[in-house]
Structure formats: C-alpha cells, structure tokens
Simulated scan of single mutants.
Amino acid sequence: MAGRVIRIERVSSRVGIVEEPVFTSKGYQLADPAHGKHKHHAEHAIHVQTLDEAAVLIGKGFSLRMGAKGKPPSLIAPKSLRIVRDGE
C-alpha cells in the first residue's frame, strides 16, 4: 500500500461519536495479540509515534486504543479499523 497514513477510523463507530486513535505521552497505544486475553493490560502495551507505524502493527493483528470526547478509550480490533492514506 502506497501513501502516508493520514487517518485510522473505526469501521462502525458508535452512533453520533467520532472515535480517533488515542495519543498518550508515550504515543499511540496498541495491544499485542501474542498476549491473548491479557493483551489489554498496560504492561503489554506497545507504543508508536506515528500513524504509519500503527498501521504496520494493525496489519500484523494488533488492536488500537481509540476514544472520543467524553467516552473512555477502548481497544478496537484490526478487522474493525480502516486505514486511510493520502491520495485515496
């Protein structure tokens, strides 16, 4: 896939809510599928600085933490994410 990642969207957002990847002081937070049912635990979090890096990991099965104003963030499975690149 060519082009820089400009946005990562949830395929089916909750009604009336625009969810975006959460950027923390450590970067975008993803969960490694190798940790199974414990992947959501903070000690297993993987952080990256760019959406391009996040997109690579999503392609490998990592979940992405997304949130919206007034709503707690949650992990979104890769099959529920759409990666938008410039030029698309």
Rank of each mutant, 00 (worst) to 15 (best):
V5P: 00
V5T: 03
V5Q: 00
I6R: 05
R7T: 11
I8H: 01
E9L: 11
R10Y: 08
R10F: 06
V11S: 08
V11E: 02
S12H: 13
S13L: 11
R14L: 15
R14E: 15
V15A: 07
V15Y: 02
G16E: 06
I17T: 13
I17D: 07
V18A: 12
E19W: 11
E19F: 15
E20A: 10
E20S: 10
E20H: 09
V22M: 13
T24D: 10
G27V: 06
Q29I: 14
L30C: 05
L30E: 00
L30M: 07
L30V: 08
A31W: 05
A31I: 10
A31E: 03
A31M: 11
D32I: 15
K37G: 10
K37D: 14
H38G: 03
H38R: 14
H38P: 01
K39E: 10
K39S: 08
H40T: 14
H40I: 14
H40L: 13
H41S: 10
H41E: 14
E43V: 15
H44D: 00
A45W: 08
H47Y: 15
H47P: 01
V48H: 02
Q49G: 08
Q49V: 07
Q49K: 13
T50K: 08
G61K: 04
G61S: 12
F62D: 01
L64F: 12
L64V: 12
R65F: 10
M66R: 02
M66F: 08
G67T: 07
G67L: 06
A68D: 03
G70Q: 08
P72Y: 15
P73I: 03
P73N: 02
S74C: 11
L75D: 03
A77V: 12
P78E: 03
P78H: 07
P78S: 06
L81A: 00
L81K: 03
I83S: 00
I83K: 03
I83Q: 00
V84A: 01
R85K: 12
G87D: 04
